[in-house]
Amino acid sequence: MTGRLQLRWLALIVAVLASVAFALPLLWMLGTSVKPIEEVTTASLRLLPEDPGNITKYARENYYSGRPHFTDANGIERTGHEGVLTSENVNFPVFLRNTVIVAVCGVLGMVLSSAIVAYGFGCIRWRGRGFFFGVLLATMMIPFPATMIPTYFIFKYLGWIGTLRPLWVPAWFAGAFNVFLLRQFFMQIPRELFDAGRIDGLSHWGIFWRIVMPLAKPALTVVALFHLIFVWNDFLAPLVYLHHQDTFTLALGLQFYQQQHGGTPWNTMMAACVLTVAPLVIVFLIAQKHLMGSMATSGLKA
């Protein structure tokens, strides 16, 4: 059995090395976001600033302050960039607010509509069900870019371009993959519960709300999480539909910020990335088991 022990050691070494390699870019981002600008442009592998005692000061400068003044390596007085949250020409708090609006409205609609549709596919027997379910599965293959242009003109016709509506209203019409996921779950609910509901005189609507939905909470949570991640990630749709920074979401706003500040102040740039990424990391830490377990059955990043 020594061979097996050796293999386990090998596995551990691979696991540790890989985890460090995967985490390094994130640590690099975090570290850079609390460094002063003059330290960012030195070829040093340090993850933290040279004077770690000043981290809170640097963090405040990069995240939340007016333009800092400093002396560069040649002894010249310079003015740095203002903190991300207090930037004069890029309104990060508004981006966050917009993303939360899209996320809340979208998640509500996606969970509710997908559950209703999944009930129709999984809990009611009717002629033509198989055919429509096949169509639903087939739509999963159609990529957004394929429908993007006419969809843009449909929203333009509705007068919705430049508003957040194109980003959350479609979520109220169910997502194919989420319907698939919920249907699988609904079909595992014991038939006796449905029968009991019927004997008690409940209609489908009653069974759906009183029996299926309370039992389906774990699956509904997964759908909510998937959609939240989707909203936070989505870039192409906001890029197409939104034109004014008052309506930008975080992903689009981050790209806008990057264009405004082109390259150099990497510390504030990384602070902006931290702010964009942090809410998702927190959600991940809370819902980790849920997410990774369901990702295994789905394998889809929305």
Binding site: F22, A23, P25, L26, W28, M29, I229, W232, N233, F235, L250, A251, L252, L254, Q255, Q258, M269, M270, A272, C273, T276, V277, L280, V281, F284, L291, M292, M295, K301
Partner: peptide, 14 residues
Amino acid sequence: FLPTLMPLVAVGII
């Protein structure tokens, strides 16, 4: 697994 959740714009900039 964590990096797969990151918004791709942030991934690009990082």
